[in-house]
């Protein structure tokens, strides 16, 4: 998949709608994978990115959120088998124009406890605590797709309101790529969202 991500996206079948200052683009890649990106039209930054996961055995397909908040799930109280307790740490991702950002909420420990290191072998960021309470391997798909190596000097982190915020400065190549992609996206003519909603079958 690392071959040439940009040309893969260029070749993908794209559909696009604009709704409330948000532009959603649906990519259908050659290998049948599906991706949706959501751009804020004011800042031109990706606010959400999600991948469709096809389960083999069971019919239900779901979305895996790469960037942005996870889909809220309703009525999950009765159905779950096992899940993390609601006051356990959880991680979300967001992008800004110059940074990739991760927020890990529900981490009450002081700033001295944490370390965020680049593991080049795994090509991932490793979040560790000295009190052995939290450990997380963060994979950075944006960089992986472009075959850019992680660099320790781009990493910084801060801690506020029980939240650990990790920022990774976007490398030059990623910024260039995103610019080029944005130009590509501007070419797609948005479909009328009202029209789509009318044709949408309500199951």
């Amino acid at each position: 998949m690392s071959v040439d991500w940009f040309s893969q996206l260029q070749k993908a079948r794209k559909k696009c709608i604009v709704q409330n200052n948000l532009k959603r683009i649906h990519f259908e890649l050659d290998d049948n994978r599906e991706m949706v990106e959501e751009y804020d039209l004011n800042t031109n930054v990706v606010t959400r990115r999600a991948w469709r996961i096809n389960r083999q055995l069971k019919g239900e397909n779901s979305w895996e959120i790469e960037i942005g908040d996870p889909e809220p799930s309703y009525d999950s109280d009765n159905k779950y088998i096992i899940r993390e307790n609601s006051n356990q740490p959880f991680i979300t991702r967001r992008n800004t124009r110059i940074n990739l950002e991760w927020r890990i909420r529900n981490l009450p420990y002081p700033i001295e406890v944490y370390s965020v290191l680049v593991d080049k072998e795994l090509s991932a960021l490793i979040v560790q605590t000295t009190n052995k309470k939290y450990y997380k391997k963060i994979i950075v798909p944006d960089l992986q797709r472009l075959c850019i190596e992680l660099e320790q000097e781009n990493v910084s982190f801060s801690h506020r309101f029980n939240t650990l915020i990790i920022t990774y400065k976007k490398p030059r190549r990623l910024i260039d790529f995103e610019k080029a992609l944005l130009e590509e996206i501007k070419k797609i003519k948005p479909e009328d969202s009202e029209e789509i909603l009318k044709n949408c079958k309500i199951s």
Partner: peptide, 18 residues
Amino acid sequence: LILKTTDMETVYDLGGKM
């Protein structure tokens, strides 16, 4: 259920079947 590895520890809620 509280589970741990050498590096971390997490509390899980269990459903009825679990």
